[in-house]
Design a protein around this nucleic acid. Structure first.
Lengths: 356, 356
DNA sequence: TTGAAAGCGCTAACAT
DNA sequence: ATGTTAGCGCTTTCAA
C-alpha cells in the first residue's frame, strides 16, 4: 500500500558545479557571475544566469559565508514577536536592513533566558550582527557578546555597547505632572519584569518626579508584562486602594482596567490609569488608554543603522546611549480625582475575564 | 581623536581546530564530542567540552550542514508577524519544533510577493523544511517548492502538499445561522485580500449557507485585512446600507465598527458585525466582537508535526487537507434586527480615527 | 576509541 | 576575462 516515494525529501540542491558544467565554464566564473557581475563578460554572465535559472539553482549563501565570514544577515532578538510594541520596531528594522541588502533574522525568546542563550548559541556564528530589542542577559554577558560580534541594544543602556533608549524620565515626568494636575496625591506603579531595564528606569523616574511634585508613590509587582499580569495587579490594587496607577506597559494597563471594572471600580472616575508604549490597541479599548508613547519606528531604524555602521567598521569613541524623545498621549483613562467618593477599595470577588 | 580600535569587529570565531589543538586531540574527536557523545571516551568528551567552553567555542552548525545538508532549522513563513492571529501559531510551532530539537526561522513577508520570493530564495538552501502560514504564491509555485523541500501549508489547501485548514464552511454556517436567528434577511461580506485562500472559501461558504437559509448576500471589497481596511469597508457599507456584516477577519471587523460608530451607526443596534479569527483584542473592544474562532495553537502544532514527519521520511499517500474545527463565539456585536429603525444609511462625513 | 583524509558549496587569491 | 588552487568549519568515511 505504502509505496516508496521515488524522490528523497531533501534532494541535493543544484550547486555552482552543476551550473558550471552545463555552461562549460569554471565554477569560479559562475560564482563571479552572481556576486561580481562586473568582472565577467556580460554575455557569459547572462548565459550563466539563464542556465542557472533553468536548472533551478539557488545560491547557498551560508556556504560562501564559511569562507568570507560575512553572511549579510543580522539578528533581531525580541522577547515576544507578538507584542504589538515591537510592530514598528520590526518593520523599521527590516526596511532599514533591506535597504542595505541585509536580511533580518527574527529571534523570539519568549522572555526565557534559556531560549535566548540557546538561540544566540545557534545563530551567533551565522550572523554579522545583533540587535537586542529585549534581552534578559546581564550587562556583562552582553558586553562579552559585543566582543565577538557587533551588537546594538534597544530599550536598555549598556556601557561600552551602542544603546538606543527612549526618554523614559521625560515621559514619566509628563505622566506624573498630568496626574498631579488632575488632583491625585498618590501614585501606584505596577511593575513589570525585574529583568527589564526599562522597568527599573521607569520606577526610578516616577519616584523622582513624584518627589519633586510632592506626591506619594507605591510600588506593586513584579507582574508579567501582559494582559494577565495587569489583571493580577488589579487584584492587588483593590486590596490597597489608590486613585492613580501607572503600569509598566499598555498590555498590563488594559488588563488592569478590565479586572478593575469587574471588581466594581470605574476607570477613570475612581482610578486613573496610565500605560507605556502606545500600542495600537490602546486607542481601541474603552476607556481609551492614556499612555506614554515612544518612537518605535525610529528605534528600529536607528538600531539597525548603527549596527550596520559598526559592521562596516565604524569606531564610535563614546557609547553614550542615543535617546529618543517620548511623549504623553492623553486619552480617556485618566480624570480628575473624585473627592466625593471614598478611595477605591473592595474585596476581591468577581471572576477573572475568561481566558480564551 | 579617533584611535584605531585594537580588535576587528568580526574576529574569526573559535573553531574545532582551536579546541582540538588545545585539547591535544584530533578535530574529528572534538566534532564527535559534540554531535555523537556516545562514540567518544566519556572523560575525553568531558575534557573537550570544558576546554571548548573556556575558549568560548560556538558550534557553527551551518558549516556542518554543507556536508550533511541537514540544518535542524525549519522556516515559518507568515505575512505579518505582528498580526495577533499568528500568536498561537508561532508559539505552537516553536514549542513543537523545540521538542524535536529544531529551530524555527520566522520569515515575515509583509504580504509582498517580492519579499516572499527573496526570503525563500535566501533561506531555502539553509533549512530542512517550510511551513507556509500565509503565502501569496500560486499553488503551482508551492508545489514546485514542495519538490525541493518538505512543505506544509496552513490556512490553505494545495493539492499534493500537506495542508492544514480550519473548517471555514462550518464556522461560516454557524455565523449565518446566528444572524438568521436574529432576524436578519441580508448579509454583506467585507472581503479580504483576493490572494488569500481563506477569503475565497469564506465567501463561497457564506453564499451557500445564505442560500440554504434563504438570505440575500452582498460582497464588498477586497480590503486590506487590517483595521484600516475595516474602516474603508465601513465607508462603503454606509453608502449601501445593511443590517448584518461578516468581515474577512477580526481586525477588519474592529476597524469597521469603529468607523461605523463615527459615521453615526450603532453596533449592534443598527448593524450586527461578525469577524473571523477570535484574536485577543476581539474580547477587549466595545462592543466585544462576535467572531468565528479557529484553533490556532493546534494548527501550529499539527503543521510542524506533519512537516517533521515528512522530513523524517514519512510518505503520506493522500494529501487531503487536515481540517480543524472552528466555532462561533457570540459576544456583543450581534443583536436582533431592529425593525423600528430604518436600515442604516448615511452620507460619509465624520473624520477617520486618528492614525497614531 | 581515535586519527587521517576527503569533501560539502562557495569565494578569494593567484595565475594565465 | 577566465581558469586553477586553496581553504572556510564541519562531518563522515575509512584506517588504525
Amino acid at each position: 500500500m505504502c509505496h516508496v516515494s521515488p524522490e528523497p525529501p531533501n534532494p541535493r540542491p543544484i550547486s555552482i558545479y552543476d551550473v558550471a558544467k552545463a555552461a562549460g565554464v569554471a565554477p569560479s566564473t559562475v560564482s563571479r557571475a552572481f556576486s561580481r557581475p562586473g568582472r565577467v563578460n556580460a554575455e557569459t554572465a547572462e548565459r550563466i544566469r539563464r542556465i542557472a535559472a533553468a536548472l533551478g539553482y539557488r545560491a547557498h549563501l551560508q556556504a560562501g559565508a564559511t569562507r568570507t565570514g560575512l553572511t549579510s544577515v543580522i539578528a533581531l532578538v525580541v522577547a515576544d514577536v507578538t507584542n504589538p510594541f515591537y510592530n514598528d520596531i520590526i518593520c523599521a528594522a527590516e526596511a532599514t536592513a533591506a535597504d542595505a541588502d541585509y536580511t533580518v533574522l527574527l529571534v523570539n525568546t519568549q522572555g526565557s533566558p534559556d531560549i535566548e542563550r540557546d538561540a544566540l548559541e545557534r545563530t551567533l556564528p551565522m550572523i554579522d550582527g545583533i540587535v537586542l530589542a529585549t534581552s534578559v542577559m546581564s550587562d556583562s554577558t552582553i558586553r562579552m557578546i559585543g566582543k565577538q560580534r557587533p551588537v546594538t541594544v534597544l530599550n536598555r543602556s549598556v556601557s561600552d555597547v551602542p544603546s538606543i533608549i527612549s526618554d523614559n524620565p521625560r515621559g514619566m515626568r509628563r505622566a506624573v505632572e498630568h496626574l498631579a494636575e488632575l488632583g491625585h496625591h498618590s501614585i501606584t506603579y505596577a511593575a513589570g519584569p525585574e529583568a527589564a531595564w526599562s522597568d527599573g528606569i521607569r520606577w526610578r523616574s516616577l519616584r523622582e518626579s513624584a518627589k519633586d511634585l510632592q506626591l506619594v508613590t507605591h510600588r506593586m509587582g513584579p507582574f508579567d508584562p501582559t494582559f494577565h499580569g495587569g489583571e493580577s495587579a488589579a487584584v492587588e490594587l483593590a486590596r490597597q486602594g489608590t486613585t492613580a496607577v501607572i503600569t509598566f506597559n499598555d498590555r498590563m494597563a488594559i488588563g488592569l482596567i478590565r479586572r478593575l471594572t469587574t471588581l466594581g471600580a470605574c476607570v477613570p472616575e475612581d482610578v486613573s490609569v496610565i500605560g507605556f508604549d502606545n500600542i495600537f490597541t490602546a486607542e481601541l479599548v474603552t476607556p481609551a488608554l492614556t499612555t506614554v508613547a515612544a518612537m518605535q519606528y525610529a528605534m528600529g531604524t536607528v538600531a539597525v543603522h548603527n549596527l550596520l555602521a559598526v559592521i562596516h567598521g565604524a569606531h564610535t569613541k563614546t557609547h553614550d546611549p542615543t535617546v529618543l524623545p517620548s511623549r504623553l498621549v492623553v486619552r480617556e483613562s485618566t480624570a480628575q480625582r473624585n473627592r466625593h467618593r471614598p478611595q477605591f477599595t473592595t474585596t476581591p470577588a468577581a471572576t477573572p475575564l475568561h481566558d480564551k
